[in-house]
Amino acid sequence: MITAQALVKQYGNKVAVDSIDFTVRPGQVTGFLGPNGAGKSTTMRMIVGLDKPTSGRTEVNGRPYREHRAPLREVGVLLDAKAANGGRSAYKHLLAIAATHGIGAARVKEVIGLAGLDSVAGKRVGGFSLGMGQRLGIATALLGDPATIILDEPVNGLDPEGVRWVRTLMRNLAAEGRTVLLSSHLMSEMAQTADRLIVIGRGRILADDPIADVISGATRSVTRVRTHESERLMATIAGPGVVVSVLADGAIEVSGLTAEQVAVAASTAGIVLHEIASMSGSLEEAYIALTAGEVEYRSSSAAGTGAHK
């Protein structure tokens, strides 16, 4: 369980995190989304005491992180893939961190195996690829067998097998009743992994809901219909709140009516439908819609194409 209350972080005049409140509950995977510079990493750093809040507070499992007797057993954290000295072996890096809590070499070897690093554990971290660095970071986070896990962009640079491993691991950890907070820019990955989402933009919370609610709240569902009698169908279903548009390939998109309502109307009028489908929005669409206007670093090609401004 992670909580934040009226959390603020200011750097000079710039407000990175603007008085946010949230609760990350155990037993589910909570996704943490937001554009670059939205305040995700800063918030995560404040949760584990690396950065000090300008005001407000965060607690992990009922108390501020630094007041725990065994912090590593409460929270496992991956913030930067390569938070290790390039000259040190992966094994010694983990051993040194484990030693602070009296965690033995047996557990260190266990997490090395878990992260699939057996073959490179004795090698110096400097030669690791980004994906290997991520695996080392995840191994570090798991060292204390923590009740809460916080991972910032854990699948960055991982191969498909690694991505799937992280997804399964997160799901399993949540199923064991642990609290999992996960940030990622890969929407498809997030859609498969998270139960709940916190979306943040320019330091403010834009959404904090179950993933299905976030998608349905920020996108519209449409019914796509294909028929030879488009004109007649449009006349049949026309009504208040119904918006119909004809796509380039001749299909019709109807919003404001469910697929069932469209099918019944067509059947009553004796119109033959060749295709009918409910199209719901994707997480990516929901995310783009939610964060539109909150994006701090927009690529110029995207900003330049719009004549509207």
Partner: peptide, 18 residues
Amino acid sequence: MSTLEKSRATFVPGPDRL
């Protein structure tokens, strides 16, 4: 490097502390 079949032990509070 197949790690899929590896699961992990359930959380058990241990005696280790800082």
